[in-house]
């Protein structure tokens, strides 16, 4: 394996700003590239994005491949994928990390198929391990049950690609000024390449406290169905000044919108206090809040796996316990 093959992160920009997850990936990128003794580069596609490239350097990236053009301002799936693939053919990175945003999840698989390599989605962790005599990227995802975790690798093909959800990794510190270089690459695109052409973007202000920023998150699960409904969660969150969230079943029951779903293919949060009520604790859910400082779980079944991952557990009737908890909190807060 040629030691010159870099570690890349895809830096997603939207409406003139970098997505948080792209910055979060930098710390993991640095860790991997340092161990492999190669450089860490970011791939940035957009329009008038020089400032964003500087920002990436300030976060510690050694190089930014910058492709700028007016037609690339908005995400263009066909064209972005072509650009990335060409870059890959030219520079042969050994690892590429992408943020698992709705756009990252659109781009990554297309690119992986184009260059005929493997891609693992929603990784809970990434690290290097010697397999068959080589340092390979191990991509960790939750298993179906219990606290089983599955290790995936891409032994033959290169680059090794992985997507990571926002909130799973932590942003590195930002320096005053970066020390790396910006490599401008002229994108070679023709109008007929835009078979799927994004013509407009409409962004809306999120309603309520964004989950990622909340100090307290209260999440409800299917167990609320027989306990009088989701109102219990909303009241508790209100008292604590926290954000409301839910499991997949809660989203399917229309108690919370999709963007408030916690879990492997939902949001990952790490608040000061995470309260789970009426969720049994399937790993697809729990992986979304394992890094919280303190976890309180309430459920009616003492055998629920949620109690394995909590600091404090209360077994009993949600309909009685949640209001009592609320009363007690009101008293002292």
């Amino acid at each position: 394996m040629n030691q010159g093959n870099e570690v890349w992160i895809w830096a997603e920009q939207r409406s003139g700003r970098l997505m948080e997850v792209s910055l979060e990936l930098i710390s993991k990128g640095l860790e991997l590239s340092q161990r492999l003794e190669v450089g860490l580069a970011a791939v940035l596609i957009g329009d008038r994005a020089e400032e964003l490239a500087e920002e990436l350097l300030a976060y510690g990236v050694g190089k930014v491949y910058l492709m700028e053009e007016a037609r690339l301002r908005l995400y263009q799936s066909d064209v972005y994928a072509n650009i990335m693939a060409n870059l890959i053919y030219e520079h042969n990175p050994q690892i590429i990390l992408l943020g698992a945003t709705t756009i990252g999840m659109d781009l990554a698989p297309r690119v992986a198929a184009k260059v005929k390599t493997g891609l693992t989605a929603h990784c809970a962790d990434l690290y290097l391990e010697e397999i068959d005599g080589r340092l390979q990227l191990v991509q960790v995802v939750p298993g179906f049950s219990g606290n089983l975790m599955v290790k995936i690798a891409c032994p033959q093909r290169r680059p090794q690609m992985a997507t990571v959800r926002p909130g799973v990794m932590e942003k590195p510190n930002c320096m005053e000024e970066g020390k790396g270089q910006i490599v401008r690459v002229k994108p070679n695109i023709k109008e007929e390449d835009f078979r799927a052409k994004t013509i407009d973007i409409v962004e809306e202000k999120p309603v309520g406290i964004p989950l990622e920023e909340a100090n307290v998150v209260v999440a409800g699960g299917w167990g609320l169905q027989s306990a009088g409904g989701f109102g219990l969660i909303e009241e508790l969150a209100n008292i604590l000044g926290g954000a409301v969230a839910g499991t997949r079943p809660a989203v399917d029951a229309n108690w919370v919108p999709e963007e408030r779903m916690i879990g492997q293919s939902g949001k990952t949060v790490s608040p000061n206090l995470f309260i789970s009520a009426g969720a049994s604790g399937a790993p697809h859910f729990t992986t979304g809040f394992l890094k919280s400082k303190v976890i309180l779980a309430i459920d009616q079944n003492p055998k629920s796996p949620i109690f394995e991952v909590s600091d404090i557990g209360i077994v009993g009737d949600l309909r009685k316990i949640v209001p009592c908890l609320g009363e007690e909190l009101k008293r002292i807060l």
Binding site: R14, L74, Y75, S77, T101, T102, I103, A196, K197, T198, I199, D200, I201, V202, E203, E204, K205, P206, E259
Partner: peptide, 8 residues
């Protein structure tokens, strides 16, 4: 997209 949409 996360908070909004694209038309393609």
């Amino acid at each position: 997209i996360e908070h909004g949409y694209l038309d393609v």
